[in-house]
Design a protein around this nucleic acid. Structure first.
Lengths: 225, 225
DNA sequence: ACCTGAACACCGTTCAAGT
DNA sequence: ACCTGAACACCGTTCAAGT
């Protein structure tokens, strides 16, 4: 069994490269991950199979296993790629702005790649999320959160973003679907009068609610001045 | 194609029943769901296959499809079974106690069946969750929440419970695993000094944090008297 | 009414082999 | 160093058939 790079080193293949059977560009970790993300975005989690991924890359079905240990690693790498964070170019003023920026960017990334939110809790934390956690941690300390309260504060924020985004994503089906669901609720009639009446499934300002709740949460977690 | 019950009617097979090939009790929706939950609890989401489920029931591989449309329906039914809610026998005093009771019961159910939290956002809302939402809705109204604020309040609570439980469940690996993860963090050294120092992955009082955060949230959502 | 096996179109992964 | 096909042990589901 030859030594495999197994995902760590992704040196680009130098020279012209014999390339793949169908004449496409040669395989590389970057290309594999980029195509995996593409496939996940368009076909969903169940749409990603090693065989389909290889096919899309113009490669033989088993070629991927040279670059990658197994399918789980593909998920980990795609997830980490999608969650990468480069802090804003412009100087943000104040700890609050930088926390909010990071969290909204995180949420945005998960909504742009709807498979990611559901996947994130099931995988180990990759560098992208560790980086975000580190930034969050440092910024909260800078904001005056006591050492003893730090972990609770971090997890509260984390939970808030995860809960809001997962829910929002799951109700982000087509308007027709939502209408149908709400109609089903109405048919069930007397069984669920209150949530039927409030049109719970339809009238929800997700973005506004997110911002508002986040403000409340940060107020609560942070020492009052 | 004969008319199938397709999950709605679950009338029990009367008479002794020819039973299954291996002589076990006859199939029924109840038995199928109960065994599915068992399998999910012991083997996880990936451990549930239609073939394995049938096998465990002492039935031929394809017998399930008489009782159930497809695998997704098995998930829906197992999820709904696990999330059923019977309000407490004893009279609870006050809206707050009854909200807290329902939410902690919900959280408890998801933690007892670790596959359920991750699955819930991906499936349509079943009767069990609709019932809980209805109860929550009515109770919040009783607590004085204005009609216009109701949906935001409901989703805030929902998001809170989901976020907290999914995260908690995902970090509920063996202590050894957690130690290893935290050690890996330490090795990465200067990269994540703050979360390494706070032992973020290890020192987390999940249950305490949940209760505290829920109290804060309910205070914030409910009109101050 | 309920259960069944054969068959189809897929999977992930190992392995020995090619260049 | 990198890519490949054959093969293995699985999947979910359809269908025609059994009782």
């Amino acid at each position: 069994m030859p030594a495999k790079p197994s995902g760590a080193s992704s040196r680009r293949s130098r020279s012209t490269g014999a390339a793949t059977a169908s004449g496409g560009p040669p395989l590389s970790l970057e290309r594999i991950i980029a195509t995996a993300v593409e496939l996940l975005d368009t076909q969903g989690v169940d749409g990603l199979s090693m065989r389909r991924l290889a096919d899309r890359l113009g490669a033989g079905a088993m070629s991927l296993y040279w670059h990658v240990g197994n399918k789980e690693e593909v998920f980990d790498l795609a997830l980490d790629a999608v969650l990468a964070y480069g802090p804003p170019e412009a100087e943000t003023h104040g700890w609050r702005a930088s926390v909010v920026h990071m969290l909204e960017d995180w949420r945005g990334a998960m909504l742009r790649h709807p498979w990611s939110a559901a996947l994130l809790p099931r995988r180990a934390l990759g560098p992208s999320m560790l980086g975000r956690l580190e930034l969050l941690s440092q910024t909260l300390l800078r904001a005056g959160v006591a050492d003893a309260d730090l972990n609770v504060a971090i997890w509260s924020v984390w939970n808030y973003v995860m809960g809001a985004t997962i829910t929002r994503g799951s109700f982000d089906r087509s308007p027709d679907d939502l209408e149908a669901a709400q109609r089903r609720l109405t048919e069930l009639g007397e069984r669920y009068p209150s949530i039927d009446r409030s049109r719970l499934l339809l009238d929800s300002d997700w973005d506004g609610a997110f911002k508002k709740g986040l403000d409340l949460l940060l107020d609560g977690l942070t020492p009052k001045r």
